[in-house]
Nucleic acid binder design. Structure first.
Lengths: 315, 315
DNA sequence: CTGAAAGCGCTTACAG
DNA sequence: CTGAAAGCGCTTACAG
């Protein structure tokens, strides 16, 4: 091909704006430039921030993101994993559903040699790339804060029994009580089966009737805290003077409710960026074909956001 | 092939759980079973509900959804449309960015013979499938409600000048004033350039200083309403007695703020389902190859949610 | 260095 | 009705 011809061809390519067809190039390269994300919930502040981080970071490398929603259903999660494998995505990012306790579907991902990144809702028994916050430590901080505000009888609304994050936040709460020499009453821990205001309200009612001496509450979600506060107020308890409350996740509603809600901020956007970063690293390494693979993990820092619902001592 | 062999083959197929490779079958069928969605914003209650509807409906037909975010940028939107076309998605669902006022990129979609569904943020000049609410009518209802609550001097915080929805809500407001014989003061209409509480606060300050006689406010978003209310309260105005306020979109925060915020509920989930439904219809029709194509549209009903911020007359 | 050919995993049109 | 072959749009290994 003469340089002249070459120039003409290149010019033509630019002119018609030729772009290779990803679908076709897959057959040779075995790369789809697609990643799949499975979220347990879509109408969810925190997962949305993560999603935004994932989409933003993926785009920088010409990756597109398939978004699926398991609706907190284990069966759906399994099905969707297999759909994504069939799609031949280059990576799968998963936050596991609340009632997922078996992990064959995750092993299938590994068997297919597809990088798996677990985020936020991770499974400790599955070896994989992980991005999460240190829930235990964050819950410790939140409980410690209530103690420092003078609370002596601190209750906890936890999540379901299975999810690791729910266990860890509970353990952080318990550890803080022990650390500061406060008694742990197991009947002051309630389960919020679903993430809703109503659930928080309901638990608050049972709690207050059985243990009126409560003066502090740490809840696994902000919605539960909002529900609890609304019940406490109905019952004439002053927040934070009679009962100090702190939630978790720092949802958009936290600064808007009355009193404004203290919470633990998790940087979801950063978490999303990190998920993609570790995925790209794994992709590179997969070329080197190390055996056994080494899975990187990342802990995203979380921080206390103190607002009116727990602030008794002002300076 | 003997029936026996056939049975054995089918058995084997079931046994190894054979699934065709979508990527490869595309080459022949020219169908990717992928649709692309471009949202102007991801951390956004309403768009999230739409997204959930889209993902849910698409899944029932084995379609997967690529989610992109234009971040309200026209340039990004153009780029992402071309990415999706390169991906050979079977359909594109778009809610256009605030500052989009040229539509060559949408014409490119049509030229590529890819069904386009515009939702929520539609462009009236582009002929395509559309799913939206009747913004003008909804804004009329909201303003009418304030009038019925006895407001005489009603201000409006509108959106940017370009988006159709922003224009329509403004027109609905204006039409209601006219219909009920109230004067329209153009200096009582303010632009909320961004969807934030701060913006609402800021506009409320200017408004109250220039027109202290204001006794009603209709805002284009709930966040703007929340901001305005907080400023009014700081200034000692009682809500709704001195100033009645109604927002738009009925975000999750609306029932949680104090006073609870009246708003216009838009059923985002239903809108998402409808987007996919009209897309599937268009797919079927495209086989019939009608010329010129007829674009179906759907109007999703919206409804007033009256809460404390505007309710003066209780019965 | 260049260019033609093979092959990725399917589907479909066609020959037998 | 069955089965072999062609072809979708790329990339890559290879022959010239």
């Amino acid at each position: 091909m003469s340089p002249k011809t070459k120039a003409r061809v290149l010019e033509y390519v630019a002119q018609v704006n030729f772009k290779p067809n990803f679908q076709a190039s897959y057959l040779r390269t075995q790369k789809t430039k697609l990643v799949g994300v499975i979220l347990p919930d879509i109408n969810h502040d925190f997962f949305n921030k993560i999603l935004k981080g994932i989409i933003t970071a993926a785009e920088t490398q010409d990756y597109n993101v398939l978004v699926l929603c398991s609706n907190e259903s284990f069966e759906k999660e399994v099905e969707q994993i297999h759909d994504l494998l069939q799609r031949k995505v280059d990576g799968i990012f998963l936050s596991i559903a609340k009632n997922t306790y078996r992990y064959e579907h995750l092993e299938a991902i590994k068997a297919a040699n597809v990088p798996l990144v677990l985020f936020d809702r991770i499974a400790k028994v599955v070896n994989s790339i992980r991005v999460a916050i240190d829930d235990q430590q964050a819950a410790f901080m939140a409980t410690e804060h209530l103690i420092q505000q003078g609370c002596k009888n601190i209750a906890h609304f936890r999540g379901d029994l299975i999810p690791q994050m729910s266990i860890d936040r509970f353990l952080g709460y318990k550890r803080a009580l022990e650390h500061y020499g406060l008694p742990f009453h197991k009947e002051w821990t309630f389960i919020c089966a679903e993430n809703s205001i109503e659930n928080g309200k309901m638990n608050a009612e049972i709690l207050l009737k059985s243990a009126p001496e409560i003066d502090g509450l740490f809840t696994i979600t902000d919605l539960a805290a909002v529900g609890a506060i609304s019940y406490f107020k109905e019952q004439g308890r002053r927040i934070p003077k009679d009962i100090a409350v702190i939630g978790f996740s720092n949802w958009a509603i936290a600064p808007l409710v009355t009193p404004t809600l203290s919470s633990v901020e998790q940087n979801g956007y950063l978490m999303g960026l990190k998920v993609v970063e570790l995925f790209f690293k794994a992709l590179e390494k997969s070329n080197e074909n190390e055996e056994p693979p080494i899975y990187e993990s990342a802990i995203i820092p979380s921080q206390l956001i103190i607002r009116d619902s727990s602030l008794r001592i002002k300076n």
